[in-house]
Write a protein that binds this DNA or RNA. Structure first.
Length: 155
DNA sequence: GCCAACGTTGGC
DNA sequence: GCCAACGTTGGC
């Protein structure tokens, strides 16, 4: 059974439009340098899982669309590249520290599911987004996914 | 740009 | 292994 996740990005760095325009509408979700998020990327997130794409640090923070995982759990190449912002001198090929997945664009919502709307829906109050706002890769329960898609996502 | 929340680092 | 200092995130 496919699971649901929420990935955050700052649209001025990488937006859902960038994802849609990418070759094969696919991108490597790299540069995650938080252990909790890393563990999800490494161990939990599988091909076929659904990803809610969230824009932060912008006028209307919220969920802007959907993507799906097309490649799961492989070492983030950026950690091995000294030129890269995300280089980690403590990571080795034998013992990689950071992981990533590839995701493919599926849909951009006609209307953003604003953080404000999520806060106002009592059935979404347990979302990790509201409890642990800073986590950039987070789980979404099947119930939460259903509510988001049924009650909030514009077709 | 401010500031609260929270993750990481490093001295002890 | 504790905890203060510091850095980063992200809503507002």
């Amino acid at each position: 059974m496919a699971r649901h996740w929420l990935f955050k990005s700052e649209p001025h760095v990488f937006s859902i439009d960038d994802l849609e325009k990418a070759p094969s509408k696919t991108t490597r979700w790299d540069g995650v340098r938080n252990y909790q998020a890393r563990n999800l990327l490494r161990d939990e997130i599988k091909v076929g899982d659904q990803v809610f794409v969230y824009h932060s640090q912008c006028k209307v923070p919220g969920i802007v669309g959907l993507a799906k995982v097309v490649k799961a759990s492989y070492p983030d190449p950026a950690q091995f590249d000294p030129e890269n912002t995300y280089y980690d001198p403590k990571a080795t090929a034998d013992n990689p520290r950071w992981f990533c997945v590839d995701i493919q664009h599926e849909k951009t919502f006609a209307k953003v599911i604003a953080l404000q709307d999520i806060k106002q829906d009592p059935s979404l109050h347990d979302m990790v987004l509201l409890r642990q706002g800073r986590l950039s890769v987070q789980p979404v329960t099947p119930e939460q996914a259903k509510i988001l898609l049924r009650d909030h996502a514009a077709k």
